[in-house]
Design a binder for these strands. Structure first.
Length: 899
RNA sequence: GCAGGGGUACCCAAGUCCGGUCAAAGGGACAUGGCUUAGGACCAUGUGGCUUAGUGCCUUCGCCGGUUCAAAUCCGGCCUCCUGCACCA
């Protein structure tokens, strides 16, 4: 692989930075600025996808450092939970995808053997080292003394998590409860989106069970999402080919599919199977409708799926396309009726019962829709599904109940559904069963169902007071871009209680119930506070057992008696006070930057936990959010094989080019796009600046001209516009001003003065030195290099941001230069229309323009290769003006005559 | 389904909050000319249409409609793309 031409330069400056310890941040008199980005999960190395968030963090850190802040920019590493454990399991099974992913990031065969041999913690630490190597190569301005890896691998950090949860529990924000989850009966664990072979995005939903009863007292429970249609039930459907079971459910005996029995057993019901019933045995039996008390019949339907709900279905043919088609099929098939020994007359007598009036439909919407869509039989599942969802939606939102409902006639379904369910409950007519919204298959190939977990621990995000505090914090925060604020507020509103513990994977056990481990998103909400302590904890080699809850309470709040606490914890009073001082100096978090996908969970949790655990003065100050990184316009993913490791990229094109190519590509919530073809544009401009810096010694002129003042004016403008955009994390705009516009101004200046020799050394040096500092956050290594070339002694990384000098920013000169540029455009235009000319005559309306242009005659002459250029006031009597062009002259627009 | 953010010329993208100065910054890409032994790099010009000695006009900013002397920008409706939706990092 070809190495970047900047590699040597970058290495050189990285070493100087490290030697000078300039990014190590200690308590000082300067104002501090504390920023963090999420710690990466270490089951692989960094790739371009990480680069956006990471580099944005570093650019901002560098910008703030140059603006007089004592910047703390630390970096930790994350290894809580299942993924790294899963990765090792896959390696063990020789999974080629996992092996190639690790190899992509630079692991060798022997590394991989070691991963399997030494397990997840070893592997996580291996990748942490890789990350640090790459970040150093990228020139990140991180204080490495504060790094750590979660959670139990750093016992002191684990202790910190324990303090966090003990405290949350004391405040009532951690509670125990039950909760439905999608569950794999084989793995005996919840099946999250990422663990699914099939059914990503499916969630849990509660079906109502309508308890129809046989005369014998046994229950035929029907699962439905529309219990309100029970009034229109004409029959039940049972699949004659399926073997059902008879089971004691609570105090009743239910006939249900075998699968349903399994589900109910996982849903807090006592289920005991006591026998079997063949579907066909139920045909023709009479059951009593639990609400209307009407008697209806059990009929056969092949579409009834034993996997779905109870495996028994209530038929409402007027409003359910499936039911109508089932009924129609049966009525047109006397053989079938005979086969199951049903009474032909009774079957033929069944008619749909109309319940709901929907605009656009008559009495029996399902019948109409089936005919309209030409659904031929119950095997036509595609069209039946479509008809069902269409009709259900229409009826739910626009449907109105008819007179069958007595008290509720005329009401909309959407407003009456819950009321009816309550009523049915009181009648002991219903029960419920949980289902997933669609089929979910676990990675282990097992079909999943819903389990109701008991004794799960929850973070009580639903707590109104907690929500209120969080919103109060949000209202005081800054957001970059400001648009995400409403997203945070919305998230706070809809956030419900969240399970915060798990049974498997790496992590910190819940201190009071150690069978549970604090789950990853829940142990990573306030760890920024740990950065402020990490350095001292390492240096003083403080054991975790000395970090008692009392100690943490004192450090984070300042409350408590240090002498007593020191005595109890055996932590020296001096160290205790030092820890407190570190925290108090660096906290709060001034900026947290992250990808936009984290807004709805991590970043919101981050705020929740801070307001719960810390005093107001330690609440976070701002959040920055950015988009993702696409590669050449397509989303990055393992399956597309377009994951580009950051390391490789830095080797190939250099850290600064990678940095600017990502960071300056998009701002706001937009996704950045890695494009190789953009690199040459950056590179050629960088090389131009480098050459200019080297060429400074060739400058000869000492007099000051208008052009010089113009250059300084423009560069001064750039200071302001760059800074404003850097401040708002709008790095694309910042690069526009600091880099592209500045380079264009410098190029224009060189052309105006007629080459480097005719440039004014003092002016040009000043301009370049400003530009170097303006681009330094984006191109830190190359800025250092250029600064050295022009004789700068101090490291740019810790230099002051250039000051905007109002006196040097001369509006009038910029206006004049604009007149000149416009005039040049006009001359170009005329030449194009009129053909080649040799002499130019310009007529000005003001002396000022005349004077300005007189200093630029050589430039104009050279540019158009004129033999002669003459300038006049428009009222000059001695002027040469055969076509009276001087009459066209206005301020800002001189008259032009060419011949 | 719920919530949030988008759709601007060949491509990326600024402009939208605070209507006119917007045929619409900047960057790519392409074309022509210059420079060069050649290639690259660099410089100039051009990239909706017609017109013109430096001008003027018409059409254009997802689609349809509205407000206004005036709309990429304000209002209403529609189409469409992206992100998240929980025990998963």
């Amino acid at each position: 692989m070809k190495k970047s031409k900047f590699a040597k330069i970058e290495k050189k400056w990285q070493q100087k930075w490290e030697k000078g310890k300039i990014f190590e941040s200690n308590i000082s008199k300067k104002p501090k600025f504390f920023l963090t980005i999420p710690y990466p999960y270490v089951n692989g190395g960094p790739h371009v996808g990480h680069s956006f968030t990471n580099f944005r963090g570093d650019v901002y850190a560098r910008f703030k450092r140059m603006n007089g802040f004592n910047v703390l920019y630390p970096q930790g590493f994350h290894a809580t939970g299942q993924p790294i454990v899963g990765a090792i399991e896959r390696l063990d099974k020789k999974d080629p995808v996992q092996i190639s992913t690790f190899k992509l990031f630079g692991a060798s065969d022997s590394d991989i053997k070691n991963f399997i041999k030494h397990g997840p913690e070893f592997t996580a630490k291996y990748w942490m080292k890789k990350w640090i190597q790459t970040l150093k190569k990228g020139g990140f301005s991180i204080d490495w003394r504060r790094s750590f890896i979660t959670t139990t691998m750093t016992p002191t950090y684990s202790r910190f998590v324990e303090w966090q949860y003990n405290t949350l529990k004391k405040k009532g924000f951690v509670v125990q409860g039950t909760h439905p989850v999608i569950w794999c009966p084989h793995d005996q664990s919840p099946t999250g989106d990422h663990d699914r072979l099939e059914g990503e995005g499916e969630s849990t939903i509660e079906y109502t069970i309508l308890k129809f009863r046989l005369d014998s007292g046994e229950v035929l429970p029907c699962g439905t999402l529309r219990p309100e249609t029970v009034y229109g039930a004409t029959n039940l459907w049972v699949n004659p080919e399926v073997e059902y079971v008879k089971a004691n459910v609570g105090k009743e005996t239910w006939i249900i599919s075998k699968q349903a029995a399994g589900k109910l057993a996982d849903q807090l019901k006592k289920v005991k199977i006591i026998g079997k019933v063949r579907g066909y045995e139920l045909m023709g039996k009479q059951v009593t409708n639990p609400v209307t008390r009407n008697k209806i019949m059990v009929l056969p339907a092949s579409y009834v799926d034993p996997e779905a709900a109870t495996g028994i279905v209530v038929s409402v043919p007027a409003h359910a396309p499936y039911d109508w088609v089932g009924l129609r099929d049966l009525q047109q098939n006397p053989d079938q009726i005979k086969k199951y020994g049903l009474n032909l007359d009774l079957v033929l007598k069944i008619k749909p019962i109309s319940l709901i009036k929907v605009p656009g439909f008559g009495e029996f919407p399902a019948v109409e829709l089936v005919e309209k869509m030409r659904i031929t039989d119950q095997k036509d599942k595609m069209r039946l599904e479509k008809a069902t969802s269409e009709l259900y939606k229409a009826e739910f939102h626009k449907g109105v109940l008819n007179n069958l409902y007595e008290n509720y006639a005329g009401k909309r379904i959407s407003e009456i559904k819950e009321v009816l369910i309550e009523e049915f409950k009181k009648m002991n007519a219903i029960d419920s069963i949980w289902e997933s919204t669609g089929r979910v298959v676990c990675r282990c190939m097992t079909v999943c169902h819903v389990k109701i977990l008991e004794n799960q621990w929850f973070l009580k995000y639903s707590d109104p007071e907690w929500k209120r505090l969080t919103k109060e914090c949000i209202s005081q925060m800054k957001f970059y871009p400001e648009e995400v604020r409403s997203q945070f507020l919305n998230t706070v509103d809809w956030l419900k209680d969240k399970a915060c513990t798990r049974k498997g994977g790496l992590g910190t056990p819940l201190p009071w119930d150690r069978q549970w481990i604090v789950e990853t998103l829940s142990d990573s909400t306030i760890y920024m506070a740990y950065y402020t302590l990490a350095k001292l904890i390492d240096q003083k080699n403080i054991p975790s057992k000395k970090l008692t809850d009392e100690v943490f309470d004192y450090i984070f709040s300042g409350r408590g008696n240090p002498i007593m606490i020191s005595k109890n914890s055996k932590l020296s009073k001096e160290v205790l006070k030092k820890l407190r001082r570190e925290f108090d100096y660096f906290y709060p978090v001034d900026l947290r930057n992250s990808g936009k996908d984290l807004v709805q969970h991590h970043l919101t949790f981050f705020i929740f936990h801070h307001v719960a655990l810390f005093d107001k003065k330690y609440w976070p100050k701002s959040i920055g959010v950015n988009g993702f990184v696409n590669v050449s316009g397509t989303k990055m993913s393992k399956s597309k094989g377009n994951i580009t490791p950051m390391d490789e990229l830095i080797e190939k094109v250099g850290a600064d080019l990678v940095r600017i190519n990502v960071v300056a590509d998009a701002e706001g919530m937009n996704d950045a796009n890695w494009r190789d073809e953009s690199l040459s544009g950056y590179e050629s401009r960088i090389l131009f600046l480098m050459k200019l810096a080297k060429d400074l010694k060739k400058t000869r002129r000492t007099s000051i001209q208008m052009v010089d003042k113009f250059l300084l004016s423009r560069i001064n403008e750039m200071i302001k516009s760059s800074a404003g955009n850097y401040e708002l994390m709008k790095f694309r705009s910042a690069s526009q001003f600091s880099f592209f516009d500045s380079v264009n101004e410098l190029k224009w200046y060189l052309e105006r003065v007629g080459g480097i020799k005719n440039a004014n050394r003092k002016i040009l040096t000043e301009a370049i030195s400003i530009v170097i500092r303006l681009v330094a956050p984006l191109l830190p290594h190359l800025a250092e290099e250029m600064n050295q070339i022009i004789g700068g002694k101090k490291l740019v990384s810790i230099s002051d941001w250039p000051k905007m000098d109002e006196k040097k920013s001369d509006r009038k000169i910029m206006e004049m230069e604009n007149v000149l540029k416009k005039t040049i455009d006009d001359i170009t235009n005329v030449l194009k229309l009129a053909g080649k000319k040799e002499k130019l005559y310009l007529y000005f309306a003001t002396d000022k323009e005349l004077e300005y242009f007189n200093q630029s005659v050589d430039f104009i002459k050279k540019r158009f290769k004129f033999k002669k250029v003459s300038t006049f006031r428009n009222d000059d009597e001695k002027k040469y003006d055969p076509q009276n062009k001087s009459s066209k002259a206005k301020f800002g627009k001189p008259g032009i005559f060419l011949e």
